[in-house]
Design a protein around this nucleic acid. Sequence first.
DNA 1: CTATTGTCACTGAACATGCGTTCAATTCAA
DNA 2: TTGAATTGAACGCATGTTCAGTGACAATAG
Lengths: 208, 208
Amino acid sequence: MARKPGSRADITGPRLREVALRLFARDGYAAVSMRQIAAEVGVQAGALYLYTADKQSLLFDLMKSHMDAVLAAWAESAAPEGDAKLRLEHFARFHIRFHAARADAVFIAYMEMRNLTPENFAVLEDLRKRYERELEAILQAGQAEGTLNVPDTKLAAMALIAMLTGVNTWFREGGRLSRDRVEDIYVDMVLKAAGAQAPAGSGENISR
Amino acid sequence: MARKPGSRADITGPRLREVALRLFARDGYAAVSMRQIAAEVGVQAGALYLYTADKQSLLFDLMKSHMDAVLAAWAESAAPEGDAKLRLEHFARFHIRFHAARADAVFIAYMEMRNLTPENFAVLEDLRKRYERELEAILQAGQAEGTLNVPDTKLAAMALIAMLTGVNTWFREGGRLSRDRVEDIYVDMVLKAAGAQAPAGSGENISR
DNA sequence: CTATTGTCACTGAACATGCGTTCAATTCAA
DNA sequence: TTGAATTGAACGCATGTTCAGTGACAATAG
């Protein structure tokens, strides 16, 4: 046998990426073999090398695509007119929603950094920092305005992102809390942690 | 050659665990071979099997020892008399200090869960949840007292721990901020996120 | 203080298996 | 009929683990 019936490059290519994303997220880059990926794609291992230079590039492409998508989506998301507190809420909601919709990619982006070559690592770290700086800029503006109060904007940015990204480690659709409810609670905690004054009328508790 | 001069079981055993902890943390469980570990211990790979049944047990033992140590240290740490807000601060400081002192073990405990067999996974998840419940109990008490204000104690416990543990991903001794300063800032954010009223006299900012 | 013994700690080779990757051959789609 | 998509075998190497063999040490005997 050689070429298979129904084989098409514009199908196998994307499928490779889908499968690799899912398997890397589930079992980890090092624990997934090219033969496993090929089996799920429905192809022999050799055929994968028509679509990726090697395993490392496959990982890097997945991670870079994800980070590019995050930054692009953030840039396109309509930043609300208003004070930094409003923009912080916008950021928190954006972050939770975007990341909830791509749990696998997020997981890989956080877990597999150490499996990148130094060059690839540097590229992705730069993108990650760029995203962090978006949040930091909001915190700085809030500090200047007086609508937020954080002792150290750099540190707070990392702390808040760690908290927000943590949602992904436990949230599963259909659990005790709805996705919207979880989002509201996290937003509430983020705003409080950043020293925002309680919004008018929200009182001491948020309810739904 | 056979037995080496100066060889002693009470030295090689602990060394194996030290080396494995460091290498697993640096490169990941799957990426570290028994031969690599053996080389750093200063021994041939076969000798490791005098000290561990297999690679999986080695990982599990390291992770379980860590979680046992966390829970034991927390149980022994003198819980302060006082309201939940005070106890939350105590928890936050305990967590940051204990985890900062064992960065490698913490990293492994978070990253390598998926490399455990289902049975070992269950054991460790149980220990992790036990620790989470310690924090949750404080939050519940605070909610009842009125000294804290969290919309959902279970969720808040996970969120706060994610934030606190995030310190380990970036903090390095000798950086821009001292360990104590970082601790203070995180404690400030944790208390705020949990809806604690500002401590008398602390005003809007913490300074040092 | 020396000789002898037994066990302890370790070596080094071997085993079967799996890995990432390459490539000539082959078959299907256009 | 041509070129694209894929196979399947092969490469060299690394993996976790086992085990017979052996040198080094501790305890004992003389």
